[in-house]
Simulated scan of single mutants.
Amino acid sequence: MKPIRLALLTAAGLVLRGVARAQTPEATAPAKAAGMSEQEVLFWLLMGLLGLLLGALLLVGITIVVQMKPQLRQLYDLPTVHNTWSGKVLGLLVGDATLVRGEYKDEMLDHDYDGIHEFDNDLPPWWKYGFGFTIVFAFVYVGYYHLTTKGQLQVAEYETEMRQAALLVSAGSDDPTKLTTYLALTTAADLGEGKSIYTTNCAPCHGANAEGKVGPNLTDEYWLHGGEVNHVYKTIKYGIPSKGMVAWKGKLSGKQILQVTSYALSLQGSNPANAKPPQGEKEVPGGKPVAGL
Score class of each variant (00 low, 15 high):
129 Y>D: 12
62 I>K: 11
99 L>V: 00
32 K>Y: 12
153 L>T: 11
36 M>K: 14
138 A>M: 13
152 Q>A: 13
148 T>W: 09
50 L>G: 01
157 E>K: 15
118 E>Y: 13
52 L>W: 10
138 A>K: 10
90 L>Y: 02
93 L>N: 00
132 G>M: 05
117 H>T: 09
150 K>F: 07
81 V>Y: 04
87 G>D: 02
125 P>M: 03
145 Y>Q: 04
137 F>T: 03
52 L>N: 07
67 Q>L: 15
119 F>R: 06
33 A>P: 00
148 T>N: 07
108 M>T: 10
76 Y>W: 02
156 A>C: 05
142 V>P: 03
88 K>Y: 00
107 E>F: 03
119 F>A: 02
109 L>T: 08
34 A>G: 03
109 L>D: 03
108 M>E: 11
75 L>R: 08
94 V>P: 00
99 L>T: 03
108 M>G: 12
148 T>L: 14
129 Y>A: 15
158 Y>V: 11
45 L>Y: 10
50 L>T: 07
142 V>L: 06
53 L>F: 12
119 F>Y: 12
41 V>D: 01
92 L>S: 05
44 W>Q: 11
60 V>G: 00
76 Y>H: 06
81 V>H: 02
41 V>G: 02
145 Y>D: 01
116 I>E: 08
47 M>G: 02
125 P>C: 04
83 N>Y: 03
122 D>S: 09
37 S>G: 10
123 L>A: 14
73 R>E: 07
121 N>S: 05
155 V>G: 04
57 L>M: 10
40 E>A: 14
94 V>N: 00
144 Y>R: 04
45 L>Q: 09
63 T>M: 15
77 D>L: 12
86 S>M: 11
37 S>V: 11
124 P>M: 02
28 T>L: 15
67 Q>F: 15
146 H>Q: 13
